[in-house]
């Protein structure tokens, strides 16, 4: 029996978060989004990920509060960066579920339920598939840089950035090409109705999660925040 939450619920929530981060001038909205994302992580049994993001959320929130409270001169840019990161932690929490706990094929099939443009859904699926591969490669590249004695140096920022970014860009292009080729040779462009090995049907429990989220979000907005 499939007890996984439909990916559409997570995609919907992740579409709401950036808007609320930009327009909701109420810290309680961010706290609600964090709590809801935390519950979802725990629902998936991702305790370590939950702890990691919780620590980051609290730390960023505290740093932002301290910078704001003590009004330390010339720290406005840092305060703004911490503020943005703080608001985007819930987004990262949900995105981590989509990246690591749903396969590209599952997401492709789920997006098909929305009858979106096929080119758009394929591009989105390739992007989601690309991220975990890139992360693995990034780790290898960092080790390679260390072995070659190349470390990021503030004394030579442009050169350091060049060493860092050049292989990334080439690998990005190559990986995108390889993944697209793998997709094409397996019929990703075939113009027919796609089926799925996963149960992607909308379930009662999906409605529960979505309604819970909407009720909570709207309540917080009506209670004190505004968009």
């Amino acid at each position: 029996m499939n007890t996984k939450i439909n990916a559409l619920v997570l995609i919907f929530i992740n579409l709401i978060i950036p808007f609320s981060a930009m327009f909701a001038h109420n810290i309680f909205v961010t706290f609600f989004l964090f709590l809801f994302s935390a519950v979802l992580l725990l629902r998936f049994g991702k305790i370590r990920r939950f702890l990691k993001y919780s620590i980051a959320f609290l730390a960023l929130g505290m740093i932002y509060y301290l910078l704001l409270h003590f009004r330390i001169p010339h720290t406005d840019v840092f305060a703004m960066s911490f503020f943005i990161l703080f608001h985007f932690i819930p987004l990262m929490m949900i995105a981590s579920l989509l990246f690591y706990d749903y396969g590209p094929s599952e997401i492709l099939s789920t997006l098909q339920l929305l009858k979106l443009n096929r080119k758009f859904t394929i591009a989105l699926t390739i992007a989601l598939r690309y991220i975990p591969t890139f992360q693995a490669e990034f780790k290898i590249m960092k080790s390679s840089m260390a072995m070659r004695g190349i470390a990021f140096s503030w004394k030579r920022p442009l050169q350091s950035f060049s060493y860092f970014i050049t292989p990334q860009l080439f690998r990005c292009s190559l990986l995108a090409e390889e993944l697209t080729a793998a997709g094409i040779t397996k019929g990703i462009e075939y113009h027919g109705v796609r089926t799925s090995i996963y149960n992607i049907k909308w379930k009662k429990s999906d409605s529960f999660w979505l309604i819970s989220f909407l009720l909570g979000f709207i309540t917080i907005i009506l209670w004190g925040g505004h968009l």
Binding site: G103, P104, S105, E106, S109, R129, P132, T133, L175, E178, L179, A181, A182, G183, K186, G187, I188, Y190, G192, V193, R194, T195, S196, I197, Y198
Partner: peptide, 24 residues
């Protein structure tokens, strides 16, 4: 590294069949 489009073995085995609309 790149010959698989998905990240799970089951999903990859089914991937081409899903694209061609083979029944479950």
């Amino acid at each position: 590294r790149s010959q698989f489009f998905t990240t799970s073995t089951l999903s990859e085995l089914a991937f081409a069949m899903e694209n061609y609309g083979i029944p479950y």
